Simulated scan of single mutants.
Amino acid sequence: MTFEELKPKVTDILHHDNTLRDEKLLQLCHLLKDNIDYYDWVGFYFRNGDKEELLLGPYAGEPTDHTVIPFGKGICGQVAVSNENFVVPDVTAQDNYIACSITVKSEVVVPLFVDGKNIGQIDIDSNVLDAFSELDERFLEFVNEQVAKLF
């Protein structure tokens, strides 16, 4: 399924009034993982109140031990500090990478802003080397713009 075909499905999931936010986010993670063949793990991390750490939110994919990530640590922790997208074509080339699985080859993390404040991020792992393009970034920015409306 193309990104353009997925956009209305993303919007539809997030606008169900009788569904809790975390359930919407979980459905969204599954939608992306199940419909984009190189998205092998899809999840959200959110800032833990005033603490400089991220907590794992809803996700689809293999379980991870990385439920708390300090700011600055790993790709997710770096995005929490930089407030910028981070595309990693080859995770083995990153010094500050936290391995979730030996099968992961590339990663993209896009920050989630609410009222101009970085409250979290969407994190995608792929078992394919150099899987992500600018099109993925633009699509995930769209996803996060829609998710931000839930906060």
Results as ranks from 00 to 15, higher is better:
D125S: 02
Q94D: 14
V68Y: 13
L14H: 04
R47Q: 13
P63S: 05
F139R: 01
E134L: 14
V81R: 02
P89R: 06
V79Y: 04
E137T: 13
L26V: 07
N48P: 10
K73G: 12
F86A: 13
H16E: 15
P111Q: 08
K24R: 09
K149V: 08
V42I: 05
R138C: 13
L25F: 00
V114H: 10
R47P: 10
E84D: 13
E62Q: 15
A60T: 03
D50P: 08
D90T: 02
F3D: 01
V110Q: 02
K9P: 03
L25E: 02
G116N: 07
H16T: 08
L54T: 04
E137W: 09
V68M: 14
G43M: 02
H66R: 15
L135T: 10
G120M: 01
E145K: 07
T64F: 11
H66I: 11
L150F: 09
Q146T: 01
I13H: 04
D12Y: 06
G57H: 05
K51W: 13
N144S: 12
F46W: 06
F3V: 00
A131W: 05
V143L: 08
L20F: 14
P8G: 05
V108M: 15
L140K: 01
H30C: 11
Q78P: 09
H15D: 09
K7G: 00
D90H: 04
V147K: 06
F71A: 07
F142T: 00
E52P: 08
I124E: 11
S82N: 13
W41H: 10
L28V: 03
D40N: 13
V108P: 10
G77T: 01
F3N: 00
K105S: 12
Q146A: 08
V108H: 07
G72Y: 10
E107L: 08
D125A: 03
A99D: 13
I69M: 15
V110K: 00
V114Y: 12
Q146E: 15
K149M: 14
L25A: 01
D22M: 12
C100R: 07
